[in-house]
Structures are given as C-alpha cells and as structure tokens.
C-alpha cells in the first residue's frame, strides 16, 4: 500500500502558489462577470439568471477542480459524487416539474 503512496507526484510549493494565483484571478473574473451580467439593461430576468448561473458554475468548477483536486480524484469519489448529482438533479427537477404541472386554474 505504501508503494502507491510513493507513486504520487512530488508536491512543489511554488507550482501550487502559481495555481492558487490563477484560481484567484479566475474567481475575480467570474465574480465581476456575474455582477456585470446582473446589471445588463436590455435582458429579462430569465436570460440574466441563466447567464449568472452559467458563470457561477464555471467559478464552482474552478474551485472544485483545482482547490478540491476533483480533476484528479479517484474513481471511487467520482462514482459517489455522480450518484449525489443525479439525486440532487432529481430532487430539484422533479419538484419543480411537479409544481408546474398543475391542473388548469389551480395555484400552489
């Protein structure tokens, strides 16, 4: 079991520092993009929400991918997160669908 440990790439502080700098710049950019998108004058709320959420997802991807090492994780963890995301989507999607699919003339 210790063999596997030694195979891991040697950690270098400087390269991580550089990586962190890029991450922070990415966070800065995405945050200002989100704020900018929310102030766009000529778009409706639906379009804005879609844009902002898309940028937020990019931001989340950067944090999860580089800070949480999700880009280079073990298969076990991917499987686990895959299930979670499926059920998360089920919870959100089906609930929202159920709330919209209502007999005519009723409201919740």
């Amino acid at each position: 079991m210790s063999q596997l440990h030694q195979v891991e790439h040697p950690v270098e502080f400087k390269s991580y520092l550089r990586r962190c700098l890029y991450v922070f710049i990415a966070v800065l950019c995405t945050t200002s993009l989100m704020i900018g998108a929310s102030f766009l004058p000529n778009y409706g709320w639906t379009a804005k929400v879609a844009m902002i959420l898309a940028v937020a997802c990019v931001n989340a991807f950067v944090v999860a991918g580089y800070l949480m090492h999700l880009l280079s994780e073990k298969k076990m963890i991917y499987t686990l997160l895959g299930f979670t995301i499926f059920f998360f989507a089920g919870l959100m999607g089906l609930t929202i669908w159920a709330m919209h699919d209502m007999p005519a003339g009723s409201s919740h």
């Binding site: 989100m34 929310s38 937020a56 989340a60 800070l67």
Partner: peptide, 17 residues
C-alpha cells in the same frame, strides 16, 4: 472548499438575481 462552493452559488442567487 465546499463551504466556499456553497457561497459561490449563494452570492449570485441572493445578491444578484
């Protein structure tokens, strides 16, 4: 990092939308 991740969604959802 997860707590940060939650905030990444909380911020636009509550402050911007």
């Amino acid at each position: 990092h997860f707590v940060d991740l939650v905030w990444i969604f909380l911020f636009p959802v509550l402050y911007l939308m």
